[in-house]
Every structure is written in structure tokens, then in C-alpha cells.
């Protein structure tokens, strides 16, 4: 009994420390963003929403936010659109070609950011198509392709094959079976993949910087450039907005999808 209690205390203590470690930098940034002065002190010396006002009234920051959201939305839609037929072909036809494409996608995701950034900057340079927003969109969608392929594959695999056959015996052809059985089952997985790619694209800075950084200023690029040049209190506000956006996106994901299953848990879980 005593031993069990000790184990519980140790376990809780350990998990709390890890949670603290994970939360600490975020808490500090959020705290600093409320500072009155220009200095980044924590805990904040005088509470103020001054820098929030500054952030939201600054045309430059607003433009960056808009650019970031545009890029991420387009990149997530493209990545999921390309991933869907790949994952479907792997599931439905057990296609070797589709498996190879999925492999290329996930391999690309594993390459170091600097390497892919250099690769794409060379590519767009040779194409003679530099500094455009679509460079970032396309580069992001191909780099992140492995994620929707994996998530959609989990979704397809969760559709029992007998369900499709049952639909056939009730008079549904291929198209109807897809529309009435596959699509509704896949909707949460598609949404989750969209959200995931959106968030990762939103936060990517190096590729964006190297393929279009001089003309396209995304939020992380602005943070990145000010990080290299010097502290700017509005940066904190930008960071807070990103923390909140990510948190909101993943909470949404938890609400629409079975998060433990998406993350790879196969055994059912008690409530």
C-alpha cells in the first residue's frame, strides 16, 4: 500500500516536472507579452495590453498574419488533395506505385529543414520564379505531404472492408459506396489532416524564408528576422497568437476526431 502510494507520488511528480518543462517557455512568452515597457522581463513589471494594440494596429504585422494564414490554408488543401488519391490507391488497390509515392512523401519530411530549404531555393531559382507566395505554398505542401498520407491511411484502414461489400449487396455501385460509406467515414480524418498540415505550415520559417523571404513576410519569418536583428516587444504578441492558434487547432482536432486512435492507439480506451 505504502509502496503503491510512493510510486504514485513519484509518477505524478515526474509528470508534473515534464509538464512544467513543456509549459515554462510558453508561459514566459505569454507573460512577457503583457509587459508595459520595452524590456522583456518576467514576471512582467507592469501589466499592459499596449503591445497587443500595437500588434493589431501595425499594418506590417497584420499583413504577415494574413500572408501566413493564406499560405497555410492553401498548402493544407493542396497537400490533402494530393495525399487522398495516394492513400486511397494504397488501401483500395494495394498499389505498389502508390506505396512508392507515399514513401517518397514521408522520406522528404524526414530531411533536415536546411537541406529542403536549400533544395527549394535552388529549384525556384532555376525556374526563374523567385520571391512568390506560391513558391512557399507548393514547397510546404510537398514537404508536409507525408503527414496527410499517414493520417488518411489510418482512416482508410479503419473502414472495415465488409462495409463496402455490404453496400454492394444492397445495390450500391462503386461510386455510391464511396459516397455513402467511405466519404462519411473519412470526413473526420480529412479534417484532422487539414488542421495538422495547416498548423505545421503556419509555423514553418526556413523554407519560406529561403524561397521567398525577401518579398513574402510570413509571421514566423518576421519573428525570425527580428530574432536575428534584435528584440521587438510585438514579437511576443505574434508568438502568443501562434501558441493560441495551435492550441485551438488541436483542441478542435480532438473534438472532431478520435485523437488517441489518430496518434496510433489501436486498443479501445475506457472513458
Amino acid at each position: 500500500m505504502n509502496e503503491g502510494l510512493l510510486a504514485t507520488i513519484l509518477r505524478r511528480g515526474f509528470l508534473s516536472l515534464v509538464a512544467l518543462f513543456i509549459a515554462a517557455p510558453l508561459v514566459v512568452v505569454i507573460g512577457v507579452s503583457f509587459n508595459e515597457g520595452r524590456r522583456m522581463t518576467f514576471p512582467p513589471s507592469d501589466l499592459s495590453l499596449k503591445w497587443y494594440r500595437a500588434f493589431f494596429t501595425d499594418a506590417g504585422w497584420m499583413k504577415s498574419l494574413e500572408t501566413s494564414l493564406t499560405i497555410s490554408t492553401l498548402a493544407s488543401v493542396i497537400a490533402v488533395t494530393v495525399a487522398l488519391p495516394i492513400a486511397y490507391a494504397v488501401w483500395r488497390y494495394n498499389s505498389k506505385a502508390a506505396k512508392a509515392l507515399a514513401g517518397v512523401g514521408s522520406g522528404l519530411f524526414l530531411l533536415p529543414g536546411v537541406v529542403t530549404a536549400l533544395m527549394f531555393s535552388a529549384f525556384w531559382g532555376v525556374m526563374g520564379h523567385v520571391g512568390r507566395i506560391e513558391n512557399v505554398v507548393l514547397s510546404h505542401s510537398v514537404i508536409l505531404l507525408g503527414i496527410p498520407v499517414a493520417m488518411l491511411s489510418v482512416g482508410f484502414q479503419s473502414i472495415e472492408k465488409a462495409l463496402i461489400e455490404a453496400a454492394h449487396t444492397m445495390g450500391a455501385g462503386d461510386a455510391e459506396a464511396f459516397r455513402m460509406v467511405v466519404r462519411p467515414a473519412m470526413t473526420p480524418y480529412i479534417l484532422c489532416a487539414l488542421v495538422y498540415v495547416f498548423v505545421l505550415s503556419l509555423n514553418e520559417y526556413l523554407i519560406a524564408y529561403m524561397v521567398a523571404g525577401f518579398s513574402v513576410q510570413t509571421l514566423p519569418i518576421r519573428v525570425f528576422t527580428s530574432l536575428r536583428s534584435g528584440y521587438e516587444p510585438t514579437m511576443c504578441v505574434g508568438a502568443v497568437i501562434f501558441i493560441l492558434l495551435g492550441f485551438a487547432a488541436f483542441s478542435l482536432l480532438a473534438a472532431i476526431g478520435d485523437l488517441p486512435k489518430l496518434m496510433g492507439r489501436h486498443r479501445p480506451l475506457e472513458a
Binding site: A19, I22, P25, L26, V28, V29, V32, M40, F42, G113, Y196, V199, L200, L202, N203, E204, Y205, P220, V223, F224, L227, M235, C236, A239, F242, I243, G246, F247, A249, F250, S251, L253, A254, L259, P260, M263
Partner: peptide, 21 residues
């Protein structure tokens, strides 16, 4: 999972900045 995913997705830029602070 939500907490982990939220930090996982955070840009290296922001995390480095947060550690700087």
C-alpha cells in the same frame, strides 16, 4: 496529446525565442 501536439507544431523560431526570454 493536445498539449504535446500544440508544442510540437510550434515554430522552432518561437521556441528558440521563448528560450531566449
Amino acid at each position: 496529446l493536445v498539449g504535446l501536439l500544440s508544442t510540437l507544431s510550434l515554430s522552432e523560431v518561437l521556441i528558440v525565442f521563448a528560450f531566449q526570454v
